Computed example of a mutant assay.
Amino acid sequence: MRVLVATEKPFAAAAVEGIRKEIEGAGNELILLEKYTDNAQLIEAVGNADAMIVRSDKVTKEVLDAATDMKIIVRAGAGYDSIDTAYAKEKGIIVENTPGQNANAVAELVFGMLVYAVRGFYNGKSGTELYGKKLGILAFGNVGRNVARIAAGFGMEVYAYDAYCPKEVIESAGVKAVGSQDDLFRTCDIVSLHIPATPETKESINYAMVGLMRKGGILINTARKEVINEAELIKLMEERSDIKFITDIKPDADAEFAKFEGRYFSTPKKMGAQTAEANTNAGIAAARQINAYFKDGCTKFQVNK
């Protein structure tokens, strides 16, 4: 079988080496398409591939139509909204992700940005501490659980809300479960977003929701850009000079947010999974999942059932 690794932003060399070892060790052929600059290059490359590993690369209908032999696509990471999963299903192509492989990296970034924020972006003036602050985690998946683990080390009070995770599971991790998303925002000094971009969540973090936060509230987003209603958040920040917004996904309205000096920060590009360890873990996990599918038909991580 021919396995294409298509990465506009390439894996680290160690990750590619690990992927190659897994794929070729199972008797399959590895094809690399790295740092491509045009979608036409991806469309050409998928033509004779049986499987594909991607990162944040967009796998559109056009790409899927060109992938005439494709059987499985694995997103090396948790989020998969860059892949047209519904159309892939129509074409009989399995789409999987690699949940948990980037979780610690994203969680550590949350705290890197939080310390930066509460210390006034290191402007030389007196800041505040995270110790004793109330941290709210919206969605208690792999990343959320790692955030909770690290927050305990900072001595924070940790709360979480997840509509799909039982209260008992949240509380077994030493975290206080709240009854609603509103309660989470109303209770906490800081809210960290870890929700996927779905029809239900897109633009759900809006004026009314963030407006529930107590004075000095900090909203931090390492999830997806689409969950933020940017226009409404800008309106709120214009009205409330105490709110800070920290994000790992540059907003479309970045220039407008930038006017809130000392209250807004965005990484230049999405950095959550950008560690050597996460890069390697996710890539090798993707390779192993492809091998498992070809060997035993395993679809444990399929997201388009």
Rank of each mutant, 00 (worst) to 15 (best):
R186W: 08
C188D: 02
C188M: 04
C188T: 05
D189G: 04
I190P: 04
V191W: 03
V191M: 05
V191F: 07
V191T: 07
S192E: 04
S192P: 10
L193T: 04
L193G: 04
L193K: 05
L193S: 08
H194C: 09
H194Y: 09
I195M: 14
I195N: 01
I195L: 14
P196H: 06
A197C: 05
A197F: 03
T198D: 05
T198M: 09
T198L: 15
T198W: 06
P199H: 06
E200D: 11
E200Q: 13
T201E: 05
K202Q: 13
E203K: 15
N206E: 09
N206S: 12
Y207Q: 05
Y207V: 06
Y207G: 09
M209T: 12
M209Q: 13
M209S: 04
M209V: 14
V210D: 09
V210Q: 10
G211L: 09
G211W: 11
L212E: 14
L212H: 07
L212N: 11
L212R: 12
M213K: 07
M213H: 02
M213L: 09
R214C: 08
R214N: 15
K215D: 15
G216D: 10
G216V: 10
G216E: 08
G217H: 12
I218Q: 08
L219Y: 09
L219G: 14
L219R: 11
N221F: 03
T222K: 00
T222A: 13
R224G: 07
R224T: 01
R224P: 06
R224C: 02
K225P: 00
K225G: 13
K225S: 15
E226C: 00
V227R: 02
I228Y: 02
N229P: 04
N229Y: 01
E230G: 06
E230N: 03
A231F: 02
A231W: 02
A231I: 06
A231P: 01
E232Y: 04
E232L: 06
L233R: 08
L233K: 07
I234S: 06
I234E: 05
I234F: 06
I234K: 06
K235D: 12
K235I: 06
M237Y: 03
E238A: 02
E239M: 07
E239I: 00
R240C: 05
R240Y: 02
R240V: 01
R240T: 05
S241G: 02
S241I: 01
I243M: 05
I246H: 12
T247V: 09
T247L: 11
D248Q: 15
I249R: 14
I249N: 14
K250P: 15
P251F: 15
P251D: 13
P251Y: 13
P251A: 12
A253V: 01
D254A: 13
E256T: 02
E256N: 01
E256A: 10
K259W: 01
